[in-house]
Nucleic acid binder design. Structure first.
Lengths: 389, 389
DNA sequence: AATTAGTTTATCGCATAAACAAACTAATTG
DNA sequence: CAATTAGTTTGTTTATGCGATAAACTAATT
């Protein structure tokens, strides 16, 4: 059983100090003590350890307010590099970040020709990771780890992909494959979970203890942040809300049921709407977004259609979770207010809580980088633990 | 900020010891040490404190397995009494429990004639609490506190009822009213939250870290247990899922929208179905349940109808929360398998996770007492903290 | 004699308060 | 204006208290 002792006390306080430096840098020891409530001497001792671990740096002095000048502390961005992978259905995005989550290199490869074998795709992934590593800068610790966001069902603890239907993957031990190849720690998580963590650490969710990240792309999934941490549920399947019933006898879904949310609010729904309304061209989602922004009528109405139904599902989730904030991510929100206005209108109308206060609904701040940055944050969070707002 | 120190360490470990005694009584110091991983001397010291606080008792010795006999420890059930109130729409149920959550006295008063004023109902409540107190047994600490479960929106921290439309209440400071009258600590929570806590402490949810308690009665609400604790959301409105959209252009709801779950799965829906199918009698929910169990055809089909739609919403919630367990409480599950069979069938069909493993869906173990026992558990949990499974 | 239960004692690690040293600003003084 | 002084802020050092622990102990039982 998880009992408490002094080791735990120190761990907690050290994480609090590190997170405080992370969030408020540059900051002095005295300010940390004031902000956290920890004693000055405690802060000094913990900061000393962080300095010898090279996670933190002293960077000059701040302005004096009538006394000794404070010593500015900041995190050591260059202590190591992290690789974050967004494993898309028809692309792979690889980013290299420093320890502050700042992107220092990135490359996206498109896989337009559907690969038949999982083996080929994994080979592509490995080649891309190799190239990313070769572009790393010189740091104290080198590559700290690799995080991978996957569109499918994942066993997070074991780094196992149970099922990724859009990739045609079943039971792939991705973590051990990549760990063996590159010899650094690897973390695998669901694409929506990675997006949520990305927004929590570096995006629109920084200051929210409780929020939902809705990944609206090929399908729909949710990453749930509760109490500043990702909530995975009892078996890691929390947030699999693509097949939430919103219309009892509605559109038939590939899952065998009818009226699944995904059939009304994903790229699938968008393209279906487009086809039903004259447009027969073979377009990518980015084409439709560009057209909508350029003012094309059918494209705009398609986004309004999808936005409305997104709003309905979002309202359902707000009623269930009562979050501070909902962040809409992945491809669809790239259409901007064309989608978001309709979404907000419908969500507000159907949201029980909106009688008492309004819930903020924002588009992703990290846009197409959300998943990859979140994957990198998976690695960082191992050292930082969970950020406290 | 919530930093860690030795006080925290002790609190945590003391709660672990108390909870272990609570769950495994009778148990010896040595067994506690083995089970928790705490050192023998630590356990002894903490048990000593619990003994002087009279929360725990030494009760004889256990069997020796070739050595000194262990001293059995148990909680002191008689340390004090707790009052739990289920404030129904047309009844008030008051129970008196001992410190082990065992009901030692109870009384239910029915309020068939609708009260016009909140004042009258509060007077009735106070009279009933007074009568309950008069029936308390002699204990060390007397009445430890009063817990109240309310069908409405509650501010838990302030003990404020924001809105209980079915009672005609708005902004009632129930905690301070009752605290001033009786001079003991009072805890107010939503009826579904209370039910969830009741099932967690004393019912079907004892061994589950994550579960949902669905209160299906006049309306529908959910109590959400995450990580052994009640999840209230950012503003205390989590679980307000009665107005989840399940049918885009479905039945109009009093809330102004269409297709709300509550319109398909509550007593409201049951009675609507009954009226639509010949039955014009003026029946209570208990009449319909009795008739269904006795084999009345319309009543049975009414429960099957409601069960199906309950299952759809339950599947939605399972997809979102991925709990270990779902408990169905309040009045409807009193119909037993007539309701539950249909519910389970539909939930399984629409539940994404059921492809990977099945989620248990059980009727409440505390039945009509769930809310009142949960209200009492609100008080107990202040001393025990959250139980660890 | 061996084993198990529970207590006592000495020790270690951590946070903390209080005392201290260092570094700086601002007001005062001749 | 330069020198002095008071006061403030930053950060370190030192002594203390508290909690968990291991080891040595007593107690009770087969």
């Amino acid at each position: 059983m998880k009992t408490a002792d002094q080791v735990l006390v120190k761990q907690i306080n050290k994480m609090i100090v590190l997170n405080t430096i992370y969030k408020k840098r540059p900051i002095s020891r005295a300010e940390i003590a004031k902000f956290t409530g920890l004693n000055k001497s405690t802060v000094s001792a913990l900061v000393d350890e962080l300095l010898t671990e090279e996670l933190v740096l002293e960077m000059g002095t701040g302005e004096s307010q009538g006394g000794r000048k404070p010593v500015n502390l900041s995190i050591n961005k260059e202590v190591g590099n992290i690789i974050g992978i967004d494993l898309g259905v028809n692309y792979i995005l690889s980013i290299m970040t420093n320890f502050a989550g700042e992107i220092i290199w990135e490359k996206r490869i498109d896989l337009l020709h559907t690969h038949t074998s999982p083996g080929q795709r994994i080979a592509d992934l490995q080649t891309l990771i190799q190239e990313t590593i070769e572009n790393a800068s010189q740091t104290v610790r080198g590559i700290i780890g690799i995080g991978i966001g996957v569109p499918g069902i994942v066993n997070y603890e074991q780094g196992l992909i149970l099922s990724a239907p859009n990739l045609g993957w079943e039971n792939i031990e991705l973590r051990s494959i990549i760990e063996q190849k590159f010899g650094v720690p690897v973390f695998i998580d669901n694409e929506a979970n990675a997006g949520a963590i990305g927004e929590k650490w570096f995006g629109a969710g920084k200051r929210a203890d409780e929020f939902l990240y809705i990944s609206a792309g090929t399908g729909i999934g949710a990453g749930i942040i509760i109490n500043n941490e990702l909530y995975r549920g009892s078996r890691g399947l929390a947030g699999e809300i693509g097949h939430m019933t919103v219309s009892l006898d509605g559109v038939p879904c590939s899952c065998g049921n009818t009226g699944c949310w995904e059939e009304y609010s994903s790229e699938k729904a968008l393209f279906r709407y487009m086809k039903e309304h004259i447009c027969v061209e073979d377009l990518t989602i980015f084409n439709v977004i560009d057209n909508a922004i350029a003012g094309d009528d059918v494209s705009r109405r398609a986004f309004e259609y999808v936005g409305k139904y997104l709003g309905i599902g979002v309202a359902n989730l707000i009623n269930a979770f009562n979050p501070q904030l909902v962040i809409i991510g992945n491809s669809l929100p790239l259409a901007g207010d064309i989608l978001m206005d309709e979404l907000r209108k419908e969500a507000e109308k159907r949201c029980f809580a909106s009688k008492y206060f309004s819930v903020k609904i924002l588009p992703s701040q990290l846009n197409i980088h959300a998943c990859a940055i979140g994957a990198a944050a998976l690695v960082i969070s191992r050292l930082y633990a969970s950020p406290v707002s």
